[in-house]
């Protein structure tokens, strides 16, 4: 089963995502509430997929994408963005994130993006 790490600074969003991901054949192996924690958890858990919030304390999602990819160039990261953050998302994709979804989440869209990101080699 594919392992997923959920990164978001609110428990609320994390539990939303967790619930959406229940519909998939994936296992949420960990959660992180900021970029720094995400990097640590990534090193520890080596998930197949990371869902990454952008605006977070300590270390934001874009820095975290860079840090994780520096650690593992094959990391698959799915950005979770709020409306109005196109510029940030582009920055994240340039940094190497694979795809993005927009909050408020549409479960079908999230699942599709997860599939695509996991399929990508």
């Amino acid at each position: 089963m594919k392992k997923v790490l959920i990164v978001d600074d609110t428990k609320f969003m994390r539990s939303m995502l967790r619930n959406i991901l229940k519909k998939k054949d994936v296992e949420v192996v960990g959660e992180a509430s900021n970029g720094k924690e995400a990097l640590e958890k990534y090193k520890e858990l080596r998930p197949d997929l990371v869902t990454m919030d952008i605006i977070m304390p300590e270390m934001n999602g874009i820095e975290a994408v860079k840090a994780i990819l520096a650690e593992d160039p094959s990391a698959k990261i799915l950005m979770c963005s709020a409306m109005g953050q196109q510029a940030m998302v582009i920055e994240a994709i340039q940094a190497g994130a694979k795809d993005f979804v927009i909050k408020p989440f549409q479960p079908a869209r999230v699942l599709e993006a997860v599939d695509r990101t996991l399929q990508e080699s």
Binding site: K23, E27, V28, G30, L111, E112, R116
Partner: peptide, 20 residues
């Protein structure tokens, strides 16, 4: 087709994911 495949994948059987 790739767009469609997402839906079929989503429709796969549900499995319990362990929660922390």
């Amino acid at each position: 087709e790739t767009v469609l495949s997402a839906d079929s994948a989503a429709a796969k059987e549900k499995k319990h994911s362990s929660s922390q």
